[in-house]
Amino acid sequence: MHGFANPARFLRIARWLMPLCMVTGIAVATGALGWGLFEAPAERLQGETVRIVYLHVPSAWLGMAGWMGIAAASFAELVWRHPLAGIAARACAVPGALFTAVCLMTGSLWGRPAWGTWWVWDGRLTSMLVLLFLYFGWMALSQASEASDVGHNKAPAIFGLVGAVNIPIIHYSVTWWNSLHQPPSITMGNSAMSGDFLVPLLLAMLGFTLIFAGVVLARMRAILADQQAEARLRRKALSEAEF
């Protein structure tokens, strides 16, 4: 991992990896959503509304993956002072928050015909809403620490690690507490879903994950370029002030 600590080396890799992730992700996700919408069968009990699963599950996975990315980057920043870790954490925040919001909205749209209600304050839905607020809090804290001239500010990294406690709570909420939400259909090495639904769902998850990776790499390039431009302009202003 320390091999990527050099921003120039990272940029060399990101220049070809970012478009590759983006193009492949868009192609795979479009194919999977088309399959889910037009080819996959309706479900016996839920009927046509089951098609929402092809958007809802990938966005739930990426909402949680985004925070796991922030936590991993925060750990690398605190332990190894990896120069790109803070940038990676900042790059994960917006796509993670967006997919969490999409998960909540599509879940609500699925809940209305399936459960007869847009929202219930049960463990799964509430912990997912808490995740969205954690993202908002983390982004505000990160911007505040960026704006302050205190130097290396550890607060966002500590918040990123502490907030990771919510991820297992989200995952196990449906088994720990009574919920209208169904228990996990896909677990490690096992699936309760028929292949008719599972294959397009796994493809949608792969496609959206590649899009997420592409967006994170694009965000990292943008933040890095902003920092480099800022440093260059600051050095220039300083050298001009000396003469």
Binding site: A29, T49, L55, H56, S59, M105, L109
Partner: peptide, 16 residues
């Protein structure tokens, strides 16, 4: 059900 399916796809695809 299609109203809810189409609204979900519009939100998800549009936001992405």
């Amino acid at each position: 059900p299609w109203t809810f399916v189409v609204a979900s796809y519009a939100i998800g695809v549009g936001a992405t």
